[in-house]
Design a protein around this nucleic acid. Structure first.
Length: 304
DNA sequence: ACGCCTACCTGCTTGC
DNA sequence: TGCAAGCAGGTAGGCG
């Protein structure tokens, strides 16, 4: 899916274009896009008439804060996109949910692969959404209809671009973890927002092999990884995200960050630092790209 | 904690 | 040309 930079781009676009807009009607073309157990019809009834006050992001989820305090969450997953379409725009065969706005525009949720989910949560809090395994033991309040603010995204790790995400905090979270770096970066309960592209890019920039385990990092490694992770995400945001076929901003335009990636989908091409061919391996069932010279293989003697 | 598997979906690319 | 396998930005849930 869109990762943190792509979701941030969408949220910023929407903040500019639909904050203040009123949703007069909604059409659900694919029921399962609406988070179970919320029935699609009820969702339509409940969202109609709502005014969008503010749009932002948590982890990889877009948050549309409504005037009455409720929050609509949009998890784009692999191919989801939120697009603002001017009146009279041609229909989009991949639009799964279409929100008609009072001024004649449409806010369209398009999603080729139908993995994305839209939720609508009462004021005062959200149930934690999409946190992955870190969330598994925290099935609090499920089905009770009352959620506290503290439970919002409770299974997610820190926002890597937040001021509070310091090297010290990162070091603490890495301590005593034996997982592979690639897997940890992808673990949303460890850090929120990093996905397959930016995990590979951060590791390349930090010169760390994706199979290294967290407990083999020294202080310099930790600092480099912390810095690299934040840098690649910030640059991604600056370039409006990396686009591969499906991702677009709310303006429907692709971002430009794909051209600037150092390793992701560059298998066989020369490393920008040393010229060695980029390799592709599979880690945790995800394709992983790295430079075998700059990011040396973790071996037992490497730990020191 | 960790890793591996299967599911969820559709379309594009690759290889025979 | 055609067809099948492999691949894709992400999670959720199950099992060991």
């Amino acid at each position: 899916m869109p990762e943190l930079p792509e979701v941030e781009t969408v949220a910023r676009d929407l903040e500019r274009w639909v904050a203040g807009a009123t949703i007069v009607d909604a059409t659900v073309h694919w029921d399962r896009t609406i988070r179970h157990p919320q029935p699609a019809e009820r969702f339509v009834a409940e969202i109609s008439g709502a005014t969008i006050r503010h749009v932002d992001r948590r982890a990889k989820t877009v948050l549309l804060h409504l005037e009455d305090g409720r929050v609509m969450t949009v998890a784009l997953r692999m191919t989801g996109a939120l697009i603002v379409a001017p009146p009279g725009s041609p229909e989009d065969p991949y639009a799964r949910v279409v929100f008609a706005l009072a001024d004649g525009r449409e806010l369209r949720y398009r999603d080729l692969r139908k993995f994305g989910r839209i939720g609508l949560w009462p004021g005062g809090g959200l149930r934690s959404v999409g946190a992955g395994r870190g969330n598994r033991s925290r099935k609090v309040a499920e089905g009770r209809g009352r959620y506290r603010i503290g439970e919002v995204f409770s299974g997610h790790g820190p926002e890597p671009l937040a001021r509070s995400f310091t090297v010290a905090r990162f070091r603490e979270r890495l301590a005593n973890r034996s997982a592979k770096l690639k897997s940890l970066l992808l673990d949303q309960s460890f850090i929120a927002g990093v996905g397959n592209i930016y995990a590979d890019e951060a590791l390349w920039r930090a010169r760390l092999h994706p199979l290294r385990t967290a407990d083999t990092l020294d202080e310099h490694d930790v600092r480099r990884l912390h810095r690299a992770t934040r840098q690649v995400l910030r640059e991604g945001v600056r370039n409006r995200g990396a686009s591969f076929s499906d991702y677009v901003g709310a303006d429907g335009e692709p971002g430009s960050n794909a051209e600037r990636l150092a390793v992701y989908r560059r298998t066989g091409e020369p490393c920008y630092r040393c010229g060695r061919r980029i390799e592709r391996i599979v880690v945790g069932q995800r394709s992983t790209h790295f430079c075998p010279r700059c990011q040396r293989e973790p071996v037992a003697s490497d730990a020191t």
